[in-house]
Nucleic acid binder design. Structure first.
Lengths: 204, 204
DNA sequence: CGCATAGTTGACTACGCTCAACCCTGGTGG
DNA sequence: CCACCAGGGTTGAGCGTAGTCAACTATGCG
């Protein structure tokens, strides 16, 4: 049993969860807001980002259907980041109190929750690793490999504007564009519309 | 009850844990090794780092007394990173099997474990945020603020070579040094031996 | 048809890296 | 007690590359 199999959740929790619809660019919660719930995306797409006075914003996660965020809610009183619906979306809301109770009583739910935490951890490590690669074209190539690897395919198609992806990768749109053309010239990728085909899928 | 209060752990787990001493630069486990245990530092200092073919190594964590690592062990078969003792150290070893059992039966242990996971999460986010600051001197200043904040003081003293810290921050030693002198010239910090005093502790 | 947004390309700038020389400290051995 | 050495830290010169700004193109929508 996992948190998404809603109809099989323990009764207390099942009655406590709620759904909410969000319009494009609508904000679900802001960094600093008092943290009252944990969330799983049912449909649409959310951007989880941190905004700091110094420096630009930092995208921590792009959450799509089935992905969760705000695990920290259970152990902290405020959100550490901001969640925005990038497109029209629907979200499942698990209130903190009832979720905590359910986790304590149902170890299979707990396992699901911890697995999500670990996954998030690994994803953050992946991001750090990416940003540790200085050369723009190498970073982009590695990013493409990660994406392809995750879905076990040899081509990647983007559902978000390239400009946005560039920023998330820590590159300016201009540099990102140049990196892509360079990778294509080097024969590492082939571009067809917004589809990118990887040539030597071996992550060198 | 937390994982560190060894004499109060459930019996099964208490009998399963072990201690180990490591010499400077000795490796505890390597990325790719089969994951068999979770660890908490009792004394000394460990560097948790990821090594990748492309790009330089990436320091994920500096674990000191009381800090834990390899939580991922419980949900994965191999270590995703390498753990090295930077100095002579002593480590507590919690075997996977017995730890898992204990977590399932003792919800206070579990809470401790999850709290550690969340903390790790936040620490990774902090690192991402740091590396998101391009200007070397700003990044260094923010790093100093984080350190001072964590210990609730207005001065930071380093127990590791500056060169190593520079690398962990994603800077060359030269650039790091220049950043420090610049911060001092700007009046943001004052250096006294290996102690750094922060001037305007408000994180602007 | 025109506007807005996304993407590409060019010219210039800025900043971090590299490499190298130099300094300073502590430890060792004569 | 001093000479030497090794490692860590600082400083300088030159280079490479990502960012910025701006112009231009392409696409989609009113």
């Amino acid at each position: 049993m996992n948190l998404l199999s809603i109809d099989r959740l323990p009764e207390n929790l099942r009655h406590a969860i709620a759904l909410r619809e969000l319009a494009p660019e609508q904000i679900l919660f802001r960094q600093g807001d008092s943290a009252s719930a944990f969330f799983i995306v049912e449909a649409g797409r959310f951007r989880i980002a941190r905004y700091v006075p110094e420096g630009r914003s930092l995208t921590l996660q792009i959450a799509k259907a089935g992905d969760s965020f705000a695990e920290i809610t259970l152990f902290s009183d405020v959100y550490a980041y901001t969640a925005t619906a990038e497109i029209a979306s629907r979200i499942i809301i698990y209130p903190k109190r009832e979720l905590l109770a359910a986790l304590h009583q149902h170890s299979d739910l707990l396992e699901d929750f911890m697995t999500r935490l670990i996954r998030k951890n690994l994803s953050l490590i992946t991001q750090l690793q990416l940003k540790n690669i200085r050369a723009a074209h190498r970073r982009v190539l590695q990013y493409l490999y990660f994406l392809a690897d995750a879905e076990n395919v040899d081509a990647v198609s983007f559902d978000r504007p390239l400009n946005q992806i560039a920023i998330d990768l820590g590159l300016s749109p201009a540099t990102f564009s140049r990196a892509l053309t360079r990778l294509e010239q080097e024969g590492r990728i082939v571009r067809e519309q917004n589809l990118i085909r990887l040539q030597n899928s071996s992550i060198a």
